[in-house]
Amino acid sequence: MKTNTAEQKVLLYDPTRCTGCLFCQIACSYQHFKEIGLEKANLHIIFDDKTGEFEAIYCHHCDEPLCVAACPNEAAVKDEITGLVKINPIRCIGCKTCTVTCPLSAPWFNAERRVAVKCDFCDGDPKCAKFCSPQAIRVALRKEAWEFNRKRYLGV
């Protein structure tokens, strides 16, 4: 059964709660690579030291994912049932097209494995949200995320 996209669970980032400890990136790299490294993470926190502005780059598991549309070998697929966008490392040929077409560059090229890697939502239990003490990044329904981000960016 296809899930209603508004009811799909996605990640939601609230910059007003983020303290810049980067434990989300650490938890992500530990989950996927069994080591602690800020580069090997599927989400990235960027902050401006002067203004104190925070932003997070992470996969939104789009309704109509550009990475899926651009993939020449059908490695990037959107799961009909869960709604998650994943990259199959066996089919991936390492062409980096998805890393360029994604507006956020959420998929990234891992030089060791020579494939593109991206957020797989930790199969329903995202470690970034689990290990974020102030709950700046958390799991929310897509409709909540819509509402939150509309308020944040458009002010309505």
Partner: peptide, 9 residues
């Protein structure tokens, strides 16, 4: 909880 980088290390 949760664990932090020091805990994982």
């Amino acid at each position: 909880s949760p664990l932090c980088s020091k805990g994982f290390a």
